[in-house]
Design a binder for these strands. Sequence first.
DNA 1: TGGCAATAGTGATATATATCATTGACTATG
DNA 2: CATAGTCAATGATATATATCACTATTGCCA
Lengths: 226, 226
Amino acid sequence: MKELEKNIQLLLQVFPMLTETEKELLLHNCHVVEFNQGETIFKEGTITSHIYFINHGLIKLVREHKNNRTIVLDIVPDAKFFGFVSLLGAKQYDVTAKAIEQSSILTIYFDAFKEIMLSNPQFTLQIMTVLSKQNLLIVNHLICISQKQLPGRVADVLLFFYKLYETTEFAFPIGRRELAEFAGTSKESFIRTLSEFKTDKIIDILDSRSIQIHSIEILEKLSIYG
Amino acid sequence: MKELEKNIQLLLQVFPMLTETEKELLLHNCHVVEFNQGETIFKEGTITSHIYFINHGLIKLVREHKNNRTIVLDIVPDAKFFGFVSLLGAKQYDVTAKAIEQSSILTIYFDAFKEIMLSNPQFTLQIMTVLSKQNLLIVNHLICISQKQLPGRVADVLLFFYKLYETTEFAFPIGRRELAEFAGTSKESFIRTLSEFKTDKIIDILDSRSIQIHSIEILEKLSIYG
DNA sequence: TGGCAATAGTGATATATATCATTGACTATG
DNA sequence: CATAGTCAATGATATATATCACTATTGCCA
């Protein structure tokens, strides 16, 4: 239990308005689960029961389609929630969640969560805010995919990781195929656009995993007008 | 005030759990506004202040892009809310809302709404549910646009109106350009696909506004495998 | 009623992106 | 160490859809 208490610290920091009783309730309805790289956390269509909080790691939310096209909706880092995209709106998860890196995930019974929501309006309001922000990100990302051309979409993917890592030189946590799925395109097209960016001196490809961004400004212009 | 009270009836039916005091509060923070066909209700980028409830009419939520592509995210009928897509997650509306038909809209100060949310958890939970469902619809629609080919997307648009009007013979409330924006394509491509559906006897085009669907099953197959 | 503006429809062409095929580089494993 | 297997990269080609140009139709208002 001591170990769990340590693991729940990050979660409690996010919700300073919880009473001691509510904290206890959370504590008793949490489990820490380790997921290896690539492992599925939950699958689309499964009955919803938990919400998830990332203690440490990186996960992706994906949607697969019959014509075996996969689209990466969002990539979620440390100290963020996932899994209630649809928790109140549907009985089943509407997306699949997979660990990108080895991840330590706090799983919380939704019933306990709901109990706190019924007793603590401030908590609920914050949850609603978190939920809205996340949805906004996903909607914006999807709109990006459906109305921008490739250079704009690839620029958006690069800017996403720039903001995530807060540095212009970083290593992608995922391969080209998944990057392409995040940009809503094919592996080859993504690679080609990335190569063009290199030719145009917007970025440098250090090795297949790492890149250095030379001009955030150009990427942002591409993102806006692409 | 009698008139307003009449107009608010529909809203109160949606929330049976409100106390008399809360009903009063809502009543004092509502206004009924009439919008003509095509009129803008709020624009993307405007500071948020109200949420909206449709007493009567039909509205659309759109997102415009610099490269003058417009995408219709959702079409919302009677007795539904709109405007809190981003209300808690952002300071500004992230979409533009326009009336498709002459519409009678109840505008509610968000502050009053929030006050009730803080005092009535059941109300909040219902709001969250409504919000989640709406977001799910929009996300699904956008995923549809970004991973299906045209026939599947056009089929989805037709199925949308089939479900809205609950009949296989109906008149579109919007023209071809807007239908295309709803399917995430160009006017010409939409028209062409619609013509193909006619050739394939899946639908009949009665006049430019009205169609009759002959096979919902085929449309659903197109939607799934398109 | 006539004429103008908006909308629907269709063909020809352009273009962005997907798909297929191949090669080269790196990685893991017996 | 060799070999198979995965992943990145690039060229050639195919294809879906956008765009352009034009005509037909409808509706609207003076």
